[in-house]
């Protein structure tokens, strides 16, 4: 019988991706481009949120939108009406983007002269949390109809996000959504997360979110 020799490896399978992500961040730093990885469930109001954010910032910041989805949830035509450039990436059925796919997308898109690129990640709260895309900051949208207990169900997603937008606060009473409980649950998982209660429909709360984004983009691109 053949003799099997065992070699210890003890290496995380995310190591390669983590290294790719670090390399991409270095490249983005040199090119003075801020990459925001935006994640959410389908139906959270990502398109409306993104469009309002673009309208608020496009005069001062050069923005591009990179959509990655198995089935696109951000309407490319709608984004085009804001006048910013966008590109659609095909993940080939994969439920997340990794750093290498992100880098290829950015190259194809030609982002060197952009100040801010928003990467619209695949619409789910599990897989994108496990793969670092190389983004400078991670943000996610939790919408009121999804419930204030969502952070408990997707702990990893909430623990890796720098910013959490709680969208559709204009319908909070209808859905019996406890904003304080949601904030407390997010803070328990991630004390550093910045939380922005907003309504993409009415525009409520967008000043604080736009300020955060403006501040972070400026600091990175200095």
């Amino acid at each position: 019988m053949d003799k099997i020799r065992v070699i210890d490896i003890k290496r995380s399978i995310f190591d390669n991706n983590d290294k790719d992500a670090e390399k991409l961040r270095e490249q983005l730093k040199q090119e003075k481009t801020f990459l925001l990885n935006l994640m959410s469930s389908p139906g959270s109001g990502k398109t409306t949120t993104l469009m309002r954010t673009i309208e608020m910032l496009k005069e001062e910041i050069k923005i591009g939108v990179m959509e990655a989805d198995i089935d696109s949830s951000v309407d490319a035509e709608k984004i085009a009406t804001t006048g910013v450039k966008s590109i659609q990436l095909h993940t080939g059925g994969m439920c997340h983007l990794d750093a290498d796919m992100t880098r290829q997308g950015l190259t194809e898109f030609g982002t060197q002269d952009m100040d801010l690129v928003v990467l619209e990640n695949v619409g789910n709260l599990v897989c994108p949390a496990e793969f670092d895309t190389g983004a400078v900051k991670n943000a996610m949208i939790l919408s009121v109809p999804e419930g204030d207990d969502k952070p408990l169900k997707y702990p990893l997603m909430f623990s890796i996000c720098d910013a959490v937008l709680i969208n559709k606060i204009d319908v909070m009473s209808v859905f019996d959504f406890d904003l304080e409980a949601a904030k407390e649950r997010i803070k328990a998982l991630n004390p550093k997360a910045e939380i922005f209660p907003v309504s993409a429909r009415t525009g409520e709360g967008f000043e604080a979110w736009a300020d955060w984004l403006r501040k972070n983009v400026t600091a990175w691109n200095e």
Partner: peptide, 21 residues
Amino acid sequence: SKQWKVKTGREVMIKDIGVID
């Protein structure tokens, strides 16, 4: 308490490989 941090359980690691010489 409901305040906690993960100690183990988030790993996906290759522990070892078996090779045939």
